[in-house]
Computed example of a mutant assay.
Amino acid sequence: MGKEECKTMLDALNRVTACYRHLVITLGSTSDSQNLREELRKTRKKAQELAAANRTKLTALLKDKSISKEDRSEYERLWVLFTSSMELLDVDMKRSLEIGQDFPLQVPTRHLIQTGMSGSTTTVAARAMSVQNMKYEADSNIDTADLKELEAEIAQVVQMMEEMEMKVQVAPWAVEAKQEAGAELKSTVSVGNSSVGVISICEEEPKEMDSEAGLKKVFAGIIFTAIILMAGILAFCVIKLS
């Protein structure tokens, strides 16, 4: 039960951090807006809540001396995945701070970049918050007020990661993967969905093209030889008749 609960919580964190990264990419673009800043704020707070819950749960389980060796190995694997997700969240929060400082909404000092992105990001934010419709309640000065909160939250995330390293010492290189290297390449999935199938098709296409080109060359050679023979016969006949 504990393992399944941890996996569910970790999946939720991964989904929210992925949505947060998607939103950060649109900062400073022509899709940037007050709504986007509020979506970023809500999404990262949701990610931090899930991170705190994951840390509490996994820390308690890894400190439990009564769990089996197999369970401990699985919890250590989940811990490594959790720390990786936290590192990505930390990177994206710092990136959001830098871009937010470069592209303020209220007193713009730079024009928004035409990156080709357009449209609303509401769907992504709603997916991260697990709601059907986003509600926007932020004030008009959210971009400046939120940057101060973001700086403080970045410091909290960094502190959380440092405490995690002190409380639970799990060496990433010591954690064994559950699948062999390249296991996904050995999958028996159909050619349409398999990367192996795509590779094999790409490798076979040049061979087919080479064989077709070879046949064309042979056919052209036969025609050219026939023309030469016909020309020779005609020349011989002309000489005889003259």
Results as ranks from 00 to 15, higher is better:
Lys7Ala: 12
Ala12Glu: 07
Thr17Cys: 06
Cys19Asn: 15
Tyr20Phe: 12
His22Gly: 08
Leu27Val: 07
Gly28Asn: 03
Ser31Leu: 02
Asn35Glu: 13
Leu36Tyr: 00
Lys42Cys: 11
Leu50Asp: 05
Ala53Met: 10
Arg55Asn: 15
Thr56Cys: 07
Lys57Pro: 00
Leu58Lys: 07
Leu58Gln: 04
Leu58Trp: 06
Ala60Thr: 15
Leu62Thr: 10
Leu62His: 12
Lys63Thr: 05
Lys63Tyr: 07
Asp64Phe: 09
Ser66Glu: 08
Ser68Thr: 10
Ser68Cys: 05
Lys69Gln: 13
Glu76Val: 06
Arg77Glu: 02
Leu78Phe: 10
Trp79Tyr: 09
Trp79Val: 00
Ser84Gly: 14
Met86Ile: 03
Met86Asp: 08
Asp90Ala: 08
Asp90Pro: 06
Met93Glu: 05
Lys94Pro: 01
Arg95Phe: 04
Ser96Lys: 00
Ser96Tyr: 02
Ile99Ser: 01
Gly100Asp: 01
Gln101Phe: 09
Gln106Cys: 09
Pro108Ser: 11
His111Trp: 05
Leu112Gly: 02
Gln114Pro: 11
Gly116Gln: 06
Met117Ile: 13
Val124Lys: 02
Gln132Val: 10
Lys135Leu: 09
Tyr136Gly: 13
Tyr136Thr: 08
Asp139Ile: 01
Ser140Leu: 08
Ser140Asn: 13
Ile142Ser: 00
Leu147Asp: 01
Glu153Thr: 08
Ile154Lys: 00
Ala155Trp: 05
Val157Gln: 03
Met161Arg: 13
Glu162Phe: 07
Met164Arg: 07
Val168Asn: 05
Gln169Lys: 09
Trp173Arg: 10
Gln179Tyr: 15
Gly182Thr: 03
Ser187Arg: 02
Ser187Glu: 06
Asn193Cys: 03
Ile199Asn: 14
Glu204Arg: 11
Glu205Pro: 05
Met209Asn: 14
Ser211His: 12
Glu212Pro: 02
Lys216Ser: 09
Phe219Tyr: 14
Ile223Leu: 12
Phe224Val: 10
Thr225His: 07
Ala226Lys: 11
Ile228Ser: 09
Met230Trp: 06
Gly232Ile: 01
Ile233Val: 13
Ile233Arg: 07
Leu241Tyr: 15
